[in-house]
Amino acid sequence: MRTWHEIRGFPLAIRLLLVNQLGVNAGFYLLIPFLAVHLGDNLGMSAAVVGIVLGVRNLSQQGLFLIGGSAADRLGARGVIIAGCAIRTVGFALFALGDGLPVLLAASVLSGVAGALFNPAVRTYLSQEAGERRAEAFALFHVFATTGALVSPLLGPALLLVGFRASALTAAAIFALLTVAQAMVLPARDVPPATSAVTADWREAVGNRAPNRPGGRPTAPDARPTVTASTSWPAAPPEKQVRRDHLGTRPGRPPLPAGPARGIGPAGDGLGIVLVTHDLDTAAQAERIVVLDGGEVVEEGTGEQILNAPSHPFTVALLGASTRRGAAVRP
């Protein structure tokens, strides 16, 4: 019930895009998994020809996502979504009606180009329309997509009892309905003028790299220390010092300069460290400690106060279960 409540909280355009993705996957998996069998068994094509037809479809889609994304940016996501669904309607209909290799290759190209158009465009439109609820929208988007992928293989074999053409025409009809629904429901949005050439956008995408960790391994945008206790260590021994090149940075910020962190905190250069840890030896280095239980703050205070005179029962139990209890706050 909560999921349905969340869905109803979105604008009609987003709800349609969720249903659209269910229909896209349902229509796709009604046809594509059975296409090789149709080409080989029903049409008597060789394995090489079957591979060419399927490969052309994959290349036309996965190889042209840059084109689809650029089209959505410059022409508007709505028009690209509608065009993609309309083109796939034609492509799937050709699979149903055509027996010759030229027609089947044309169907493969059309259905692949269609996917290259509407896949990035749908995600662009969803991101723009969802606003602050973008994460929820994409989570539901993938739920609907997975549901469509699960349902259609159950329906496909039943349609194959009638024949491959029945399955392909059903898939084409699904995309035709989606085309009409999106043309009627999706509101048009103003498209801001492009400020750079398409090739410049592609170079920017190719050159976009995450900062590297020491040793050259890429760092994910959120792979940075989580922090719960702040401290300054102006005179920490070498083995306790933290190197700045071991600290992640927030996305969009330059990495911190490498080198030993001498004088971290108010006594140093204005930097601080906050750590989330279960290691009380580490926590003992902190000037202030925050104790969390199930994500809720239960106690906060100086390191000496928390470790030597805790007041909350959870903190008392936590320290009592550790051999660290009773040790000095500072080494």
Rank of each mutant, 00 (worst) to 15 (best):
P11H: 12
L292Q: 11
A173K: 11
L318M: 12
R88E: 12
S60T: 10
Q61N: 12
G55T: 05
G100I: 11
A286L: 04
A321Q: 09
L150D: 07
P11W: 12
T302V: 07
A47W: 09
L150P: 06
L154C: 08
R213H: 09
R253G: 11
A106P: 06
L318C: 08
A173P: 10
C85K: 12
A229F: 11
F314C: 12
P313D: 10
V143A: 14
E239D: 13
V180I: 06
G294F: 04
G112R: 03
A171D: 00
G100N: 15
I306P: 00
P11D: 10
W4A: 13
G295P: 08
V191D: 00
P214A: 06
H278Q: 13
T147G: 14
G27F: 01
L110W: 05
T124H: 04
F141S: 01
P211T: 06
A210R: 11
S167L: 11
Q285K: 15
R15Y: 03
A149H: 10
V206N: 03
A181C: 09
T231R: 09
A235H: 14
R15C: 01
I81R: 00
D245E: 13
A327P: 01
W202D: 00
D293T: 15
A328E: 11
T199D: 13
A72S: 09
F95W: 04
A220E: 12
P234R: 04
G9F: 05
L30R: 03
W202L: 07
